[in-house]
Amino acid sequence: MAKVTFREERCKGCGLCIQVCPKKIIRENQEKLNAKGYFPAEVVDMDKCIGCAFCATICPDCVITVEK
């Protein structure tokens, strides 16, 4: 089991995490804009997360914390 948390107010909606997630469980949360006006990324199916930290590694803004 693994878990990722996103600091949504720091996300700039760049989409890099979405692109590298091997499990394809990250998507842009279109319903919520953060204060900067970006659609923050979010994990849709945390159970599938394997804690590989690919998303956190490519995130330029330290938005993602990974637990395993």
């Binding site: 089991m1 107010e9 930290a53 956190a56 590694t57 330290c62 990974v66 637990e67």
Partner: peptide, 18 residues
């Protein structure tokens, strides 16, 4: 579970302008 990836201490915890 333990944290396996987080922002490093040597980075100030502020948003970057990039």
């Amino acid at each position: 579970m333990e944290v396996v990836f987080k922002a490093p201490h040597a980075l100030v915890d502020v948003p970057m302008h990039y």
